[in-house]
C-alpha cells in the first residue's frame, strides 16, 4: 500500500534526473556542432532536446501529482517539488538557447569559437553537478555538501568566463558591427542562464538539506 506508490515515484524521479542530465549533454553537443558548422547533427540534437524537454515536463507533472495526491514527505513536499521545477527550468533554458541558435544563427567569429565552447562547457558543468547533488539529497542527505559546492564553483567560473568573452567581443573584434557584437553578447547571456538555473536549484537544495537535518 505505502511502498508500491513510493517505488514508482522513486523511479520517476530517477528518470527525470536522467532526462535532465541527457538534456544538458545534448545541449553541449548541439552548441559544439553549431560552432563546427555541422548543421545536420545540430538539427538532430535540437530535435532530441525538444523531445527530452517534453519528457521532463511530463515526468515532473506526474511526480508533482504523486507528491500532492498521496501526500508524500508532506513536510518537505513543496520544497522538493520546487526543486524539481527548478531542475526542469535547466532543460527548458537549454532548449530555448539551442532554439535561438537555430533561429537567430549568430555569426560567431572563428577566433571566439573556443571561448564560446568553453563557456558552454563550464556553464553545463554547473548544471551537471547539481544532478548528483539532488540524487544524494534523496539517498543520503548528509552528503549533499560534497556535490553542491561544485555547482557554486562552476557558476562563478561561468560568470568570469562570460565577462571575459563579452570584453573580447566588444574590444578585440573590431571588424564586427555593433549590432553583431550586441547579438553575440545576448548569446553569452543565454549560455550563462544555464548555470544560473543550476545555482537556483542548488540554493533550494541547501535549504532542504538544513530542513531535513535531524
Amino acid at each position: 500500500m505505502f511502498f508500491k506508490k513510493t517505488k514508482s515515484t522513486i523511479r520517476d524521479i530517477d528518470e527525470f534526473l536522467n532526462t535532465i542530465d541527457q538534456g544538458i549533454l545534448v545541449f553541449k553537443e548541439g552548441v559544439k556542432y553549431y560552432l563546427e558548422n555541422d548543421d545536420d547533427n545540430f538539427s538532430k540534437n535540437l530535435e532530441k532536446l525538444y523531445k527530452l524537454e517534453a519528457k521532463a515536463d511530463t515526468i515532473v507533472l506526474k511526480i508533482r501529482n504523486e507528491f500532492f495526491e498521496h501526500s508524500l514527505i508532506p513536510q518537505y513536499s513543496a520544497d522538493v517539488v520546487s526543486l524539481l521545477d527548478h531542475l526542469d527550468d535547466i532543460i527548458d533554458t537549454a532548449k530555448e538557447n539551442l532554439f535561438q541558435y537555430d533561429v537567430e544563427v549568430p555569426d560567431i567569429p572563428k577566433k571566439l569559437n573556443s571561448e564560446f565552447s568553453k563557456l558552454t562547457d563550464v556553464s553545463c558543468a554547473a548544471a551537471e553537478a547539481v544532478i548528483p547533488a539532488v540524487r544524494s539529497f534523496f539517498n543520503n542527505p548528509s552528503s549533499i555538501k560534497d556535490n553542491e559546492h561544485r555547482v557554486y564553483f562552476y557558476e562563478k567560473e561561468t560568470d568570469v568566463l562570460a565577462s571575459d568573452l563579452k570584453r573580447k567581443i566588444f574590444k578585440d573584434t573590431k571588424h564586427l558591427k555593433l549590432s553583431q557584437k550586441i547579438h553575440l553578447r545576448y548569446f553569452t547571456l543565454h549560455i550563462e542562464q544555464i548555470s544560473d538555473r543550476a545555482e537556483d536549484a542548488a540554493r533550494i537544495l541547501s535549504a532542504l538539506a538544513i530542513k531535513t537535518k535531524d
Binding site: F2, T6, I73, N139, T212
Partner: peptide
C-alpha cells in the same frame, strides 16, 4: 539516527517506512 545513517534509505522509502 545510527540506523538511518548505516542503512541509507531513499528519502521517499524512509517516508513510507515512517508512515507504517
Amino acid at each position: 539516527h545510527v540506523y538511518f545513517k548505516i542503512v541509507g534509505i531513499h528519502l521517499l522509502k524512509q517516508d513510507a517506512y515512517i508512515r507504517f
